[in-house]
Amino acid sequence: SSYVCVECNFLTKRYDALSEHNLKYHPGEENFKLTMVKRNNQTIFEQTIN
């Protein structure tokens, strides 16, 4: 599966890399929402900020 930060167009295969991205680029933000999307037999988790 892949993880994408929709706000930044940041894409990674690792959830911990997304967490690091959030700490660096969205410090103090807590209203993240992950949406699971299936595309071409791949699972993509799209992160948006509410």
Rank of each mutant, 00 (worst) to 15 (best):
T12A: 08
E29W: 07
L34A: 10
F32T: 15
I49Y: 13
N50Y: 05
R14M: 15
V4C: 11
H26K: 00
N9S: 10
V6C: 09
H21L: 00
T35V: 14
T43R: 07
V37Q: 10
Y3N: 01
N40C: 04
K38D: 06
L11K: 11
T48P: 05
E7C: 09
Q42F: 04
K38L: 04
N22V: 02
Q47N: 03
N9K: 15
V6D: 03
Y3W: 13
Q42G: 09
F45M: 14
E29C: 09
S2V: 02
S19P: 09
V37A: 09
V4M: 13
C8P: 00
Y15A: 04
K38H: 09
Y25H: 14
N31A: 06
N50T: 03
E29F: 04
L34F: 02
N40T: 11
D16C: 14
L34T: 15
N41D: 12
T43H: 15
F10K: 04
T43M: 06
R39S: 12
E30M: 06
Y15Q: 15
A17N: 06
L34E: 14
Y3H: 06
Y25S: 13
L34Q: 13
I44F: 08
I44H: 07
R39G: 11
F45C: 14
N41A: 06
N41S: 09
L18N: 02
C8M: 00
L34S: 13
Y3Q: 02
F45I: 15
K13R: 07
N50D: 14
T12Q: 07
Q47D: 01
E20M: 04
H26E: 02
R14T: 15
M36A: 12
K13S: 14
T12I: 09
T35G: 09
T35E: 13
S1E: 11
S1Y: 03
K33Q: 03
N22Q: 02
Y3L: 08
E7M: 07
S19N: 13
E29M: 08
V6I: 13
I49V: 14
F32E: 03
F32H: 06
S1A: 02
L18I: 09
L18D: 02
I49Q: 04
H21E: 01
V6L: 04
D16Y: 05
N31V: 02
P27Q: 09
F45S: 14
E46L: 02
N31D: 14
M36T: 15
C8G: 01
G28Y: 03
V6Y: 07
S2Q: 05
S19L: 09
Y15D: 15
T48F: 06
S1Q: 02
E46H: 15
K13F: 12
V4N: 05
Y15E: 15
Y15C: 00
E46M: 02
E7H: 08
S2F: 04
A17G: 13
S19W: 04
N9L: 09
A17P: 04
C5W: 01
K33I: 06
M36D: 14
E20L: 07
I49P: 06
K38Y: 07
R39A: 08
N40H: 07
C8E: 02
